[in-house]
């Protein structure tokens, strides 16, 4: 785990314990939980930000310890960002990402999807939106066949619904004329 922010050792007064699906416990600074709607609401509902309240470990049954490590890395990096906010319009729609994000999300697709589900579960809008944008950037600019390859989608279309013409596996069919003409022929490898 590489964090740019030095990890302050959490003290019992300002942290909570979360438990991943495989039973591993993580001490989490309350400041870090501000990025997650799920955790922030939980803390405010149970008044865990008060020192005189007894804190139970929070079980996160949908998240493995590996995913939790990854999430905590994100939270550490964004600890000084504004609190979570639901409205997406505050987040960028561009396909250019800061270097840290590109390195952070330079992971296989299946790990990315798992991380996306975890971000959805914990409702970390900034992370959720960023992964969605990365996914969209991997779809954009490719022909149908290239998307199938990149995202490992097996085609289930044998005949075109409207013409009855079989869709050929190579992308030179007339059906792909539009895309071949207007899209980049050789996408950068992911």
């Amino acid at each position: 785990m590489s964090c740019e922010e030095p990890t302050t050792s959490p003290t019992p007064e300002n942290n909570i314990t979360v438990v991943s699906s495989d039973g591993k416990e993580f001490l989490l600074d309350l400041k870090l939980t501000e990025q997650s709607e799920t955790l922030a609401r939980l803390i405010s509902n149970f008044e865990y930000d008060r020192t005189d309240v007894k804190k139970d470990p929070v079980p996160l049954g949908n998240i493995t310890s590996a995913q939790m490590q990854k999430i905590i890395e994100w939270l550490q990096h964004h600890r000084y960002y504004p609190k979570w906010e639901q409205n997406d319009i505050h987040y960028s729609t561009s396909f250019t990402f800061e270097t840290w994000v590109e390195e952070y999300l330079n992971i296989p697709n299946n790990e990315m999807f798992e991380l996306l589900n975890a971000a959805n579960y914990l409702n970390i809008p900034r992370l959720f939106s960023t992964i969605c944008r990365i996914m969209a950037s991997r779809i954009t600019g490719k022909s149908a066949e290239q998307i199938r390859t990149v995202l490992n989608i097996k085609t289930d279309v044998k005949n075109d619904v409207y013409t009855g013409i079989p869709i050929q596996e190579d992308s030179s069919s007339s059906e792909d004329g539009m895309s071949e003409i207007s899209l980049s022929p050789s996408p950068p490898p992911i």
């Binding site: 959805n120 779809i139 149908a144 279309v157 792909d176 539009m178 895309s179 899209l183």
Partner: peptide, 26 residues
């Protein structure tokens, strides 16, 4: 992926990309 997540992702894609994605499978 859950529908909400998937639609959120695809909302970032433009028209031509969606037309290509549309051709990948039913």
């Amino acid at each position: 992926l859950p529908d909400v997540t998937l639609l959120h992702t695809l909302n970032f894609c433009d028209y031509l990309s969606l037309q290509c994605l549309r051709k990948t499978c039913k």
